[in-house]
Nucleic acid binder design. Structure first.
Lengths: 154, 154
DNA sequence: AAAACATATTTGCCTTGACAAATATTCTGG
DNA sequence: CCAGAATATTTGTCAAGGCAAATATGTTTT
Protein backbone atom coordinates (compact mmCIF):
# COMPACT_ATOMS: atom_id res chain seq x y z
CA UNK A 1 0.00 0.00 0.00
CA UNK A 2 1.21 3.44 -0.94
CA UNK A 3 1.20 5.57 2.20
CA UNK A 4 2.94 8.56 0.65
CA UNK A 5 1.19 11.61 -0.75
CA UNK A 6 -0.58 11.29 -4.07
CA UNK A 7 1.74 13.63 -5.87
CA UNK A 8 0.68 15.56 -8.91
CA UNK A 9 3.29 17.48 -10.89
CA UNK A 10 3.47 21.13 -9.93
CA UNK A 11 2.61 22.18 -13.47
CA UNK A 12 -0.73 20.44 -13.03
CA UNK A 13 -2.20 22.99 -10.65
CA UNK A 14 -5.91 23.36 -10.72
CA UNK A 15 -7.51 26.25 -12.50
CA UNK A 16 -8.86 27.72 -9.28
CA UNK A 17 -5.50 28.00 -7.61
CA UNK A 18 -3.84 29.32 -10.72
CA UNK A 19 -6.43 32.04 -11.19
CA UNK A 20 -6.09 33.03 -7.59
CA UNK A 21 -2.33 33.31 -7.88
CA UNK A 22 -2.56 35.42 -11.02
CA UNK A 23 -5.09 37.68 -9.39
CA UNK A 24 -2.91 38.23 -6.33
CA UNK A 25 0.12 39.15 -8.44
CA UNK A 26 -1.96 41.39 -10.66
CA UNK A 27 -3.30 43.32 -7.69
CA UNK A 28 0.15 43.49 -6.15
CA UNK A 29 1.62 44.81 -9.37
CA UNK A 30 -1.07 47.43 -9.88
CA UNK A 31 -0.86 48.68 -6.32
CA UNK A 32 2.92 48.89 -6.60
CA UNK A 33 2.63 50.97 -9.77
CA UNK A 34 0.08 53.25 -8.15
CA UNK A 35 2.18 53.68 -5.02
CA UNK A 36 5.24 54.37 -7.19
CA UNK A 37 3.37 57.38 -8.55
CA UNK A 38 2.86 58.59 -5.00
CA UNK A 39 -0.86 57.92 -5.11
CA UNK A 40 -2.92 56.32 -2.38
CA UNK A 41 -5.49 54.04 -3.97
CA UNK A 42 -6.57 50.46 -3.42
CA UNK A 43 -7.00 48.13 -6.35
CA UNK A 44 -10.77 48.09 -5.95
CA UNK A 45 -10.86 51.88 -6.05
CA UNK A 46 -8.72 51.86 -9.15
CA UNK A 47 -11.15 49.46 -10.80
CA UNK A 48 -14.11 51.63 -9.82
CA UNK A 49 -12.50 54.70 -11.37
CA UNK A 50 -11.72 52.72 -14.47
CA UNK A 51 -15.27 51.49 -14.87
CA UNK A 52 -16.66 54.97 -14.45
CA UNK A 53 -14.12 56.44 -16.84
CA UNK A 54 -14.75 53.81 -19.49
CA UNK A 55 -18.49 53.40 -19.21
CA UNK A 56 -19.65 56.75 -17.87
CA UNK A 57 -22.02 57.47 -14.98
CA UNK A 58 -23.98 54.58 -13.58
CA UNK A 59 -25.90 53.43 -10.55
CA UNK A 60 -24.13 52.28 -7.38
CA UNK A 61 -25.68 48.86 -7.84
CA UNK A 62 -24.57 48.67 -11.45
CA UNK A 63 -21.06 49.58 -10.44
CA UNK A 64 -21.10 47.05 -7.60
CA UNK A 65 -22.39 44.25 -9.83
CA UNK A 66 -19.91 44.96 -12.57
CA UNK A 67 -17.03 44.32 -10.20
CA UNK A 68 -18.79 41.77 -7.97
CA UNK A 69 -18.50 43.94 -4.88
CA UNK A 70 -21.05 43.78 -2.08
CA UNK A 71 -23.52 46.66 -1.95
CA UNK A 72 -22.55 47.63 1.57
CA UNK A 73 -18.88 47.67 0.69
CA UNK A 74 -19.69 49.80 -2.33
CA UNK A 75 -21.39 52.42 -0.16
CA UNK A 76 -18.21 52.76 1.89
CA UNK A 77 -15.90 52.91 -1.10
CA UNK A 78 -18.13 55.59 -2.58
CA UNK A 79 -17.90 57.49 0.71
CA UNK A 80 -14.13 57.43 0.48
CA UNK A 81 -13.83 58.40 -3.17
CA UNK A 82 -16.48 61.07 -2.84
CA UNK A 83 -14.76 62.41 0.28
CA UNK A 84 -11.55 62.76 -1.68
CA UNK A 85 -13.37 64.54 -4.46
CA UNK A 86 -12.98 61.94 -7.19
CA UNK A 87 -16.65 61.26 -7.73
CA UNK A 88 -20.12 62.60 -7.02
CA UNK A 89 -23.45 61.07 -6.03
CA UNK A 90 -26.24 62.67 -8.04
CA UNK A 91 -29.91 61.80 -7.86
CA UNK A 92 -31.07 59.40 -10.53
CA UNK A 93 -33.42 61.06 -12.99
CA UNK A 94 -35.87 58.17 -13.36
CA UNK A 95 -35.53 56.32 -10.05
CA UNK A 96 -35.49 58.16 -6.76
CA UNK A 97 -34.12 55.15 -4.91
CA UNK A 98 -31.01 55.11 -7.01
CA UNK A 99 -27.93 57.25 -7.42
CA UNK A 100 -26.09 58.40 -10.47
CA UNK A 101 -22.41 58.00 -9.71
CA UNK A 102 -20.17 60.15 -11.86
CA UNK A 103 -16.53 61.12 -11.89
CA UNK A 104 -15.62 64.69 -11.04
CA UNK A 105 -13.01 66.60 -13.01
CA UNK A 106 -10.48 65.52 -10.39
CA UNK A 107 -11.58 61.93 -10.83
CA UNK A 108 -11.12 62.10 -14.58
CA UNK A 109 -7.74 63.71 -14.15
CA UNK A 110 -6.72 60.98 -11.73
CA UNK A 111 -7.78 58.32 -14.16
CA UNK A 112 -5.70 59.95 -16.89
CA UNK A 113 -2.71 59.54 -14.61
CA UNK A 114 -3.57 55.94 -13.88
CA UNK A 115 -3.99 54.73 -17.45
CA UNK A 116 -0.24 54.35 -17.83
CA UNK A 117 -0.06 52.14 -14.73
CA UNK A 118 -2.86 50.04 -16.08
CA UNK A 119 -1.22 49.68 -19.47
CA UNK A 120 2.19 48.89 -18.03
CA UNK A 121 0.90 46.11 -15.82
CA UNK A 122 -1.27 44.51 -18.48
CA UNK A 123 1.54 44.69 -21.00
CA UNK A 124 4.02 43.15 -18.57
CA UNK A 125 1.56 40.44 -17.59
CA UNK A 126 0.95 39.40 -21.18
CA UNK A 127 4.48 40.08 -22.29
CA UNK A 128 5.17 36.54 -23.43
CA UNK A 129 1.80 36.12 -25.17
CA UNK A 130 1.32 36.86 -28.85
CA UNK A 131 -1.66 38.88 -30.00
CA UNK A 132 -3.47 35.69 -30.95
CA UNK A 133 -2.73 34.16 -27.57
CA UNK A 134 -3.96 37.26 -25.75
CA UNK A 135 -7.20 37.09 -27.64
CA UNK A 136 -7.53 33.41 -26.88
CA UNK A 137 -6.87 33.93 -23.20
CA UNK A 138 -9.53 36.60 -23.10
CA UNK A 139 -11.93 34.41 -25.01
CA UNK A 140 -11.36 31.38 -22.80
CA UNK A 141 -11.78 33.36 -19.60
CA UNK A 142 -14.96 34.88 -20.93
CA UNK A 143 -16.32 31.42 -21.74
CA UNK A 144 -15.33 30.07 -18.33
CA UNK A 145 -17.04 33.02 -16.68
CA UNK A 146 -20.17 32.46 -18.70
CA UNK A 147 -20.24 28.75 -17.91
CA UNK A 148 -19.84 29.39 -14.18
CA UNK A 149 -22.54 32.04 -14.14
CA UNK A 150 -24.90 29.67 -15.92
CA UNK A 151 -24.10 27.02 -13.35
CA UNK A 152 -24.41 29.32 -10.35
CA UNK A 153 -27.76 30.78 -11.32
CA UNK A 154 -29.72 27.57 -11.61
CA UNK B 1 -14.97 68.67 -27.27
CA UNK B 2 -16.27 65.21 -26.44
CA UNK B 3 -17.76 65.32 -22.97
CA UNK B 4 -19.29 61.82 -23.10
CA UNK B 5 -17.65 58.72 -21.66
CA UNK B 6 -14.87 57.09 -23.63
CA UNK B 7 -16.77 53.92 -24.26
CA UNK B 8 -15.08 50.62 -24.85
CA UNK B 9 -17.17 47.63 -25.91
CA UNK B 10 -18.14 45.39 -23.01
CA UNK B 11 -16.37 42.44 -24.58
CA UNK B 12 -13.13 44.37 -24.27
CA UNK B 13 -12.87 44.07 -20.51
CA UNK B 14 -9.41 44.17 -19.08
CA UNK B 15 -7.68 41.02 -18.00
CA UNK B 16 -7.64 42.09 -14.36
CA UNK B 17 -11.37 42.51 -14.11
CA UNK B 18 -12.07 39.33 -16.01
CA UNK B 19 -9.82 37.27 -13.77
CA UNK B 20 -11.46 38.73 -10.71
CA UNK B 21 -14.91 37.87 -11.99
CA UNK B 22 -13.92 34.31 -12.80
CA UNK B 23 -12.35 33.91 -9.39
CA UNK B 24 -15.48 35.14 -7.61
CA UNK B 25 -17.71 32.74 -9.51
CA UNK B 26 -15.33 29.85 -8.96
CA UNK B 27 -15.29 30.42 -5.22
CA UNK B 28 -19.05 30.86 -5.19
CA UNK B 29 -19.51 27.63 -7.10
CA UNK B 30 -17.15 25.61 -4.92
CA UNK B 31 -18.68 26.88 -1.70
CA UNK B 32 -22.14 26.10 -3.02
CA UNK B 33 -21.10 22.53 -3.85
CA UNK B 34 -19.52 22.11 -0.43
CA UNK B 35 -22.57 23.50 1.34
CA UNK B 36 -24.80 21.23 -0.74
CA UNK B 37 -22.96 18.30 0.80
CA UNK B 38 -23.80 19.66 4.22
CA UNK B 39 -20.20 20.55 4.96
CA UNK B 40 -18.98 23.74 6.56
CA UNK B 41 -15.76 24.80 4.84
CA UNK B 42 -14.50 28.02 3.33
CA UNK B 43 -12.85 28.03 -0.05
CA UNK B 44 -9.45 28.77 1.45
CA UNK B 45 -9.80 25.80 3.78
CA UNK B 46 -10.77 23.61 0.88
CA UNK B 47 -7.65 24.71 -0.97
CA UNK B 48 -5.47 24.01 2.05
CA UNK B 49 -6.84 20.49 2.36
CA UNK B 50 -6.30 19.96 -1.33
CA UNK B 51 -2.69 21.10 -1.20
CA UNK B 52 -1.95 18.86 1.74
CA UNK B 53 -3.70 15.90 0.14
CA UNK B 54 -1.93 16.34 -3.17
CA UNK B 55 1.54 17.30 -2.00
CA UNK B 56 1.76 15.71 1.43
CA UNK B 57 2.96 17.27 4.71
CA UNK B 58 4.68 20.62 4.52
CA UNK B 59 5.60 23.65 6.57
CA UNK B 60 3.04 26.28 7.47
CA UNK B 61 5.04 28.82 5.52
CA UNK B 62 5.23 26.56 2.48
CA UNK B 63 1.49 26.06 2.61
CA UNK B 64 0.90 29.79 3.04
CA UNK B 65 3.18 30.69 0.13
CA UNK B 66 1.67 28.11 -2.17
CA UNK B 67 -1.74 29.73 -1.84
CA UNK B 68 -0.53 33.32 -1.32
CA UNK B 69 -2.09 33.56 2.12
CA UNK B 70 -0.61 35.77 4.82
CA UNK B 71 1.31 33.93 7.54
CA UNK B 72 -0.84 35.30 10.33
CA UNK B 73 -4.00 34.27 8.54
CA UNK B 74 -2.49 30.83 8.02
CA UNK B 75 -1.94 30.39 11.76
CA UNK B 76 -5.63 31.02 12.37
CA UNK B 77 -6.81 28.74 9.59
CA UNK B 78 -4.56 26.02 10.97
CA UNK B 79 -6.10 26.60 14.40
CA UNK B 80 -9.55 26.05 12.96
CA UNK B 81 -8.75 22.98 10.91
CA UNK B 82 -6.68 21.45 13.69
CA UNK B 83 -9.48 22.16 16.18
CA UNK B 84 -11.89 20.28 13.93
CA UNK B 85 -9.47 17.39 13.70
CA UNK B 86 -8.62 17.62 10.02
CA UNK B 87 -4.92 18.26 10.43
CA UNK B 88 -2.09 18.10 12.92
CA UNK B 89 0.91 20.31 13.74
CA UNK B 90 3.98 18.18 14.26
CA UNK B 91 7.47 19.42 15.04
CA UNK B 92 9.72 19.73 12.03
CA UNK B 93 12.53 17.20 12.12
CA UNK B 94 15.29 19.49 10.85
CA UNK B 95 14.11 22.96 11.88
CA UNK B 96 12.81 23.61 15.35
CA UNK B 97 11.25 26.91 14.31
CA UNK B 98 9.03 25.25 11.78
CA UNK B 99 6.02 22.93 11.84
CA UNK B 100 5.17 19.91 9.80
CA UNK B 101 1.50 20.23 8.86
CA UNK B 102 -0.13 16.95 7.98
CA UNK B 103 -3.65 15.73 7.36
CA UNK B 104 -5.22 13.41 9.90
CA UNK B 105 -7.24 10.40 8.84
CA UNK B 106 -10.34 12.54 9.19
CA UNK B 107 -8.74 15.17 6.99
CA UNK B 108 -7.93 12.63 4.29
CA UNK B 109 -11.44 11.24 4.49
CA UNK B 110 -12.88 14.74 4.15
CA UNK B 111 -10.77 15.39 1.11
CA UNK B 112 -12.02 12.17 -0.47
CA UNK B 113 -15.51 13.55 -0.11
CA UNK B 114 -14.52 16.87 -1.57
CA UNK B 115 -12.81 15.63 -4.71
CA UNK B 116 -16.15 15.21 -6.44
CA UNK B 117 -17.07 18.85 -5.71
CA UNK B 118 -13.75 19.93 -7.06
CA UNK B 119 -14.13 17.88 -10.22
CA UNK B 120 -17.71 18.98 -10.82
CA UNK B 121 -16.88 22.66 -10.58
CA UNK B 122 -13.79 22.48 -12.76
CA UNK B 123 -15.61 20.42 -15.35
CA UNK B 124 -18.54 22.84 -15.42
CA UNK B 125 -16.23 25.83 -15.62
CA UNK B 126 -14.36 24.44 -18.61
CA UNK B 127 -17.38 22.80 -20.12
CA UNK B 128 -17.21 24.71 -23.37
CA UNK B 129 -13.46 24.35 -23.77
CA UNK B 130 -11.89 21.53 -25.73
CA UNK B 131 -8.95 19.63 -24.29
CA UNK B 132 -6.56 21.68 -26.37
CA UNK B 133 -8.17 24.90 -25.20
CA UNK B 134 -8.01 23.82 -21.57
CA UNK B 135 -4.33 23.15 -21.94
CA UNK B 136 -3.80 26.48 -23.61
CA UNK B 137 -5.71 28.33 -20.90
CA UNK B 138 -3.57 26.67 -18.28
CA UNK B 139 -0.42 27.43 -20.22
CA UNK B 140 -1.31 31.08 -20.76
CA UNK B 141 -2.21 31.62 -17.12
CA UNK B 142 1.03 30.01 -16.06
CA UNK B 143 2.97 32.31 -18.35
CA UNK B 144 1.10 35.38 -17.12
CA UNK B 145 1.79 34.36 -13.53
CA UNK B 146 5.45 33.89 -14.28
CA UNK B 147 5.71 37.25 -16.03
CA UNK B 148 4.03 39.05 -13.15
CA UNK B 149 6.22 37.37 -10.56
CA UNK B 150 9.30 38.36 -12.52
CA UNK B 151 8.05 41.92 -12.64
CA UNK B 152 7.05 42.09 -8.98
CA UNK B 153 10.37 40.78 -7.64
CA UNK B 154 12.67 43.32 -9.24
C1' DA C 1 -55.89 51.72 -5.43
C1' DA C 2 -54.09 48.64 -1.78
C1' DA C 3 -51.28 44.90 -0.73
C1' DA C 4 -47.50 42.23 -1.66
C1' DC C 5 -43.30 42.00 -3.52
C1' DA C 6 -38.94 43.59 -5.49
C1' DT C 7 -35.06 46.81 -5.67
C1' DA C 8 -31.52 50.70 -4.19
C1' DT C 9 -29.01 52.41 -0.64
C1' DT C 10 -27.33 52.64 3.99
C1' DT C 11 -25.84 50.82 8.47
C1' DG C 12 -24.47 47.40 12.13
C1' DC C 13 -22.21 43.25 13.09
C1' DC C 14 -18.97 39.71 12.33
C1' DT C 15 -15.19 37.31 10.00
C1' DT C 16 -11.02 37.39 7.64
C1' DG C 17 -6.88 39.04 5.65
C1' DA C 18 -2.76 42.26 5.66
C1' DC C 19 0.79 44.31 8.26
C1' DA C 20 3.72 44.89 12.11
C1' DA C 21 5.78 43.50 16.46
C1' DA C 22 7.38 39.77 19.50
C1' DT C 23 9.72 35.40 20.23
C1' DA C 24 12.35 31.42 19.01
C1' DT C 25 15.56 29.39 16.07
C1' DT C 26 18.75 29.09 12.20
C1' DC C 27 22.18 30.89 9.09
C1' DT C 28 26.23 33.91 7.70
C1' DG C 29 30.33 36.61 7.89
C1' DG C 30 34.17 37.71 10.42
C1' DC D 1 32.53 30.73 18.16
C1' DC D 2 29.79 35.24 18.12
C1' DA D 3 27.13 39.18 16.49
C1' DG D 4 23.95 40.30 13.26
C1' DA D 5 20.81 39.10 9.71
C1' DA D 6 17.28 36.07 8.15
C1' DT D 7 13.33 32.94 8.81
C1' DA D 8 9.12 30.44 11.17
C1' DT D 9 5.38 31.04 13.92
C1' DT D 10 2.23 33.56 16.78
C1' DT D 11 -0.46 37.54 18.29
C1' DG D 12 -2.46 42.34 18.20
C1' DT D 13 -4.46 45.81 15.48
C1' DC D 14 -6.79 47.67 11.73
C1' DA D 15 -9.24 47.87 7.28
C1' DA D 16 -12.45 45.70 4.15
C1' DG D 17 -15.94 42.52 2.60
C1' DG D 18 -20.18 39.58 3.35
C1' DC D 19 -24.63 39.25 5.30
C1' DA D 20 -28.73 40.83 7.37
C1' DA D 21 -31.83 44.45 8.86
C1' DA D 22 -33.79 49.06 8.12
C1' DT D 23 -35.66 52.57 5.09
C1' DA D 24 -37.27 54.49 0.88
C1' DT D 25 -39.05 53.86 -3.52
C1' DG D 26 -40.68 51.31 -7.48
C1' DT D 27 -43.43 47.37 -9.66
C1' DT D 28 -46.92 43.84 -9.91
C1' DT D 29 -51.08 41.58 -8.63
C1' DT D 30 -55.59 41.47 -7.51
Amino acid sequence: MNTGPLVTPTSQESLGLLINLVRVELVRSMEAEIAAKGMDLRYIQFVMLKRLAMLGPMTATELARSVELDGGAMTRQLDQLEGRGYLRRRPHAQDRRALRIELTEAGNALWQQLTSCNDRVLEAAQHSLSDVERERLHDYLGRVLHALRDKNRS
